[in-house]
């Protein structure tokens, strides 16, 4: 594989977009089927075998709908917001190493880049909410901002802990470091920090909150805010927000798999490859779906309390502990 660099990037961009598109569509299917199974019902069955063509039917429906812009809304921002939500998720995937050689770019600052772009997503949803000139959407936008400010902090602290252990922000190198079996994975790297599993749990909780997933789906708390920031969106505008949610879940779960679960490394030290990465990724995605259909939504202030009063002190604690461990050993 020695394509010239620009072509390689273009090919990769196409690949990632296809990956995200197919995943977003089929994660909806997984979510609906999963929810149905949790709820003792069959879920989609009508379109295609086991409802497998349902996402395509949904997409066709959404595409054929009129794009409505509410009167007095900020037309430009209203239209731009869905794109702004989708684009950072695609950018983040550019640095994700799917396999030993499968990745667009092995950036030295890969992790930093993922977080830099990951934060834009929040601003885009906020813009969407603000631009729709709807009271529910504005409440939702305000909630999203404070929620994400609250959860970026423990997430960053966790990631800093991890960077201290690995000594690099290059995602490919982080994965390489974890070679040799599941006991080498960061989540079990108790020698560096005995609280590593706790760190992983904090990371996962923050990831749920960052992607606005239940039980932290304050933004589109449908029983309170109708559909939150997306209330006024119709057709593909809503569809793109919806896809972006799954794209962000993909990014979040990929990061979880890379940082803590050894990425594409095999748990037994042999036969490492992209299959393992996808397995770990989808296991995490499934957990996200599972959590959503099991728990009720938290209160908004309960969510902030959890972050400021529990997660931030605990993650600070693990950070300090890691510093001490690194200094001593």
């Amino acid at each position: 594989m020695t394509l010239p660099e620009p072509f390689r990037l273009l090919a990769y961009l196409a690949g990632v977009m296809a990956f995200v598109g197919v995943n977003a569509a089929y994660l909806v299917w997984v979510e609906r089927k999963g929810a149905a199974r949790f709820q003792r019902r069959p879920g989609p069955t009508e379109v295609g075998p086991a409802g497998l063509l349902q996402p395509l039917a949904d997409a066709a429906k959404l595409l054929s709908k009129q794009l409505l812009v509410p009167p007095d809304a900020d037309r430009t921002l209203f239209r731009v917001a869905p794109v702004l939500v989708m684009a950072p998720a695609l950018m983040c995937l550019a640095t994700i190493p799917f396999g030993k050689t499968l990745g667009a770019r092995s950036l030295d600052l890969g992790l930093v880049m993922v977080f830099a772009f990951g934060s834009i997503n929040v601003m885009a949803i906020m813009l969407g909410g603000w631009a729709s000139r709807n009271k529910y959407a504005i409440i939702s936008a305000a909630r999203i901002v404070s929620q994400n400010v609250a959860y970026e902090i423990p997430m960053m602290l966790v990631v800093i802990t991890l960077i201290m252990v690995t000594g690099t922000t290059n995602l490919q190198e982080i994965v390489e470091d974890q070679a040799g079996g599941f006991w080498k994975w960061n989540v079990f790297n108790l020698a560096a920090n005995p609280l590593m599993p706790v760190t992983f749990v904090i990371f996962f909780i923050c990831m749920l909150a960052e992607t606005n997933r239940a039980p932290f789906d304050m933004a589109e708390a449908e029983s309170e805010l109708v559909a939150g920031a997306f209330t006024e969106y119709a057709g593909m505008g809503f569809g793109v927000f919806f896809m972006a949610e799954y794209a962000n879940i993909l990014v979040g779960c990929s990061l979880g798999a890379i940082l803590f679960l050894g990425g594409w490394q095999s748990p037994f030290g042999i036969l490492s490859g992209v299959g393992w990465f996808l397995l770990k990724l989808y296991a995490l995605v499934f957990t996200v779906v599972w959590v959503r259909w099991t728990f009720p939504r938290t209160q908004f202030y309960g969510l902030l309390n959890l972050s400021w009063k529990i997660l931030i002190p605990v993650s600070l604690g693990t950070l300090v502990l890691t510093c001490i461990m690194l200094k001593i050993f």
Partner: peptide, 16 residues
């Protein structure tokens, strides 16, 4: 009530 609190699944069990 659980639906109001954002938990969708109990509704289906209750209706069962």
């Amino acid at each position: 009530f659980l639906l109001d609190l954002g938990g969708f699944t109990p509704l289906l069990y209750a209706f069962d």
